[in-house]
């Protein structure tokens, strides 16, 4: 029973990591840029929803506030690409990495100024308590997280495989010049993908905030999600989710069965092992460069 209990709470945590990792992978798949601020996007999405929902801020009903905050984050993602990242066109990957890390610092600072550094809880209808199935206690929020994540991943996968826009995004990432010649508005497509990833980050944030308190430093979770994305292999949506689940499940088991102090290094040790033996992740998509 204890194992099942750990597994479920691990899966729920893993889904949040997986959702943040999904945001990384979306942007990477379409633009080959890596958004290190994705964790802070998640935090910002959670705080926007919290600010709209909680009684002593705006006080909207949750089911109005949640879609609204997802929309706000999508617009924010698009504007970010429009005003900042589009000007980096043609610069190296490292420049984007450093820029987004700096962006994370700025977002954390701004969120701290607006909503203060105290941990706060979202007044969410998802957090209505636990129920008991054959000795296993499941939180409603945990189940909601798992269901939403699976649905979202499925829809995004279908979106990339089947819709015109999804294919355009893939084409733009594989060869920008050729995509231009095929009539794809590469810049606008990239803006849309940043908007989409902002929306995914908001979903992750709302789910994360339903599970417990958040503060502006919650964005540092992004590093763990990044590890998840790398373990799964950048550029693969199911891979990102798998990576997130692996990291999420390892954590509670490590803290249960390993001595104290060794448990929090488990995900990073796994990450280093994956990088040493499969440098492009478990679901690799890269050929070896030949001269």
């Amino acid at each position: 029973m204890e194992v099942v209990q750990l597994l479920v709470s691990g899966l729920a945590n893993g889904c949040v990591y997986g959702l943040i990792a999904l945001g990384f992978v979306l942007i990477y798949k379409a633009t080959e840029q890596v958004n290190f601020a994705q964790g802070d996007f998640m935090m910002l999405g959670a705080f926007v929803c919290l600010g709209l929902t909680n009684a002593h801020y705006v006080g909207l009903p949750f089911w109005v506030a949640a879609p609204l905050s997802i929309a706000i984050m999508a617009v924010l993602g698009y504007l970010l690409d429009f005003f900042v990242l589009r000007h980096l066109f043609g610069q190296s990957q490292t420049a984007v990495v450093i820029l987004t890390i700096a962006l994370g610092f700025v977002i954390r600072f701004v969120a701290g100024v607006i909503w203060s550094h105290e941990p706060q809880t979202l007044e969410s209808p998802l957090a209505i308590g636990d129920f008991n199935i054959g000795g296993v206690v499941l939180g409603m929020a945990d189940i909601a997280v798992i269901v939403v994540t699976v649905l979202l991943t499925y829809f995004l996968y279908q979106f990339f495989q089947r819709t015109k826009l999804g294919l355009a995004m893939q084409a733009a990432s594989q060869n920008q010049m050729a995509a231009y010649f095929m009539g794809i508005p590469v810049k606008r497509v990239q803006g849309m993908i940043w908007g989409l990833s902002g929306a995914v980050a908001a979903v992750a944030g709302i789910l994360f905030a339903s599970k417990g308190a958040i503060d502006p430093n919650a964005g540092l979770l992004g590093i763990k999600a990044f590890a998840a994305a790398v373990i799964g292999g950048f550029g693969s949506l199911p891979g990102a989710l798998m990576g997130g689940l692996i990291v999420g499940v390892i954590e509670p088991f490590a803290s249960r069965y390993f001595p104290a102090g060794y448990s929090q290094i488990a995900p990073y040790t796994l990450l280093l092992f994956v990088l040493v033996f499969r440098p492009h992740g478990l679901f690799s998509q890269v050929r070896i460069k030949k001269v």
């Binding site: 980096l88 962006l103 610092f105 954390r108 701290g112």
Partner: peptide, 22 residues
Amino acid sequence: AIPGLETGVFGMILILFILFEP
């Protein structure tokens, strides 16, 4: 004391540099 002010300003400076003076 404003927590995160230093890193926030530092991040801002860095963004401006990468955009306008790589």
